[in-house]
Design a binder for these strands. Structure first.
Length: 271
DNA sequence: AAATAATCCTGCGGGC
DNA sequence: TGCCCGCAGGATTATT
């Protein structure tokens, strides 16, 4: 499911082929996403030139000079660049045509979003209150220590809270805590600054490794026919309940924390 | 105020 | 084999 690395890989995949092209048409086959695709979207973007594709958290921002098309892939969304004339399939809900080149949005579960924000995209209510980007310098041990202080939430859950830091979803929360050797059930507020530093480093490593893996195993975002944007990775603990830890061989455990499956190695992550 | 539950939706795997 | 059930997951909203 698209976590930050998949979204970033998507951004890189679609930016080059679409940048500086002018929108010729918008086709909405099914507007019923998590929120409806705005009826006025076509008139906002038609005839306008795409300046760049940015990412904030797991949102993609397709910037035009007067505003941005905000896209979220939800659980099952993907974007790919196809040729006009390529026949859409069942869950291909939206096409943004740039002449012969078409950005095609597919989302079987329709948890995704496609919205318009005039002016500065970061002012949109969904984006305005987000925490720092995990790959930027403001996300550091002091920040994490500060936003964890006083919290009795399990650190795994706290790490997934977008007000504290964005872009750490369920898979990479477990993976990052494994790398940091921190037990996911430990209350966030009890972690020392030093252990917060370990988590910060681990989050960065985990996300960067996943982005690199996405880059290297990239299923073409342009043309082709595969599942755009998803890449399979080898995980340390995620979805490995009952299997041996890749580091020490101890059986990986699973628990539900804040309604989400959480995986860890009880030996590598003792506290 | 903070923790927990429910919600949106479809595909898929397991059990019978 | 086929059907039903439950689960998965991101992020918001409602409820306790």
């Amino acid at each position: 499911m698209p976590e930050l690395p998949e979204v970033e890989t998507t951004r890189r995949g679609i930016d080059a082929p679409l940048k500086n092209r002018v929108v010729s048409a918008l086709t909405v086959r099914n507007a019923r996403l998590r929120q409806p695709v705005p009826p006025a979207l076509a008139q906002e973007i038609q005839g306008r030139r795409l300046q760049a594709v940015r990412r904030r958290a797991k949102y993609l921002l397709l910037d035009f000079e007067h505003g941005s098309l905000i896209v979220h892939l939800g659980m099952s969304g993907s974007l790919r660049v196809v040729q006009s004339g390529d026949v859409p399939e069942k869950h291909d809900h939206v096409d943004v045509a740039f002449g012969e080149v078409v950005l095609r949005y597919r989302d079987p579960r329709r948890f995704g979003l496609m919205l318009w924000q005039a002016g500065d995209a970061l002012q949109h209510p969904l984006l305005a209150d987000l925490g720092p980007e995990p790959l930027e310098a403001v996300f550091d041990a002091s920040h994490l220590f500060q936003v964890f202080s006083g919290s009795r939430q399990p650190v795994k859950q706290a790490l997934m809270d977008a007000k504290r830091v964005v872009g750490v979803g369920n898979i990479y929360a477990s993976e990052s805590l494994f790398r940091a050797r921190v037990n996911p059930l430990v209350p966030a507020g009890t972690l020392s600054r030093r252990r917060c530093a370990a988590i910060v480093a681990a989050v960065r490593e985990t996300l960067l490794a996943a982005i690199a893996a996405g880059g290297s195993t990239l299923r073409d975002f342009v043309g082709g026919d595969g599942k755009a944007g998803y890449f399979q990775q080898t995980y340390f603990v995620y979805d490995r309940e009952g299997q041996p830890c890749r580091v020490c061989g101890t059986v990986v455990l699973r628990a539900v924390v804040g309604q989400r499956s959480t995986y860890w190695c009880p030996r590598c992550q003792r506290r």
